[in-house]
């Protein structure tokens, strides 16, 4: 199991009901982690519509995650 810190912005913050959480996960990549969190929080956005960020860098969905990583899922926002 891997322990990561996940931050939520925008619609994810609303749907997760929190700005961040510590997650213990069996996922090994950013994509697997997102799939797991979708099940847990009923996220409405498909992975294709957002970006994963691992340790302050944009990351592909197959980027591996390891203990202590900071993961952020970023939805596009358009308000102005």
């Amino acid at each position: 199991m891997t322990q990561v810190n996940v931050q939520y912005y925008a619609i994810f913050r609303e749907q997760a009901g929190a700005s961040d959480e510590s997650v213990e996960t069996g996922a090994t990549t950013a994509g697997e982690l997102y799939a797991e969190l979708c099940d847990r929080h009923n996220f409405s956005l498909p992975a294709a519509a957002l970006r994963a960020v691992v340790n302050e860098e944009f990351a592909d969905w197959d980027t591996p995650i390891s203990d202590g990583d900071r993961v952020v899922f970023i939805p596009p926002v358009a308000g102005g």
């Binding site: 619609i11 956005l45 944009f58 102005g80």
Partner: peptide, 18 residues
């Protein structure tokens, strides 16, 4: 490069509030 697939849906202020 930041959004390789042009997102189709992003809520605006009118919908999400601000």
């Amino acid at each position: 490069c930041v959004w390789p697939r042009e997102p189709n849906v992003a809520p605006t202020c009118n919908e999400a509030g601000v």
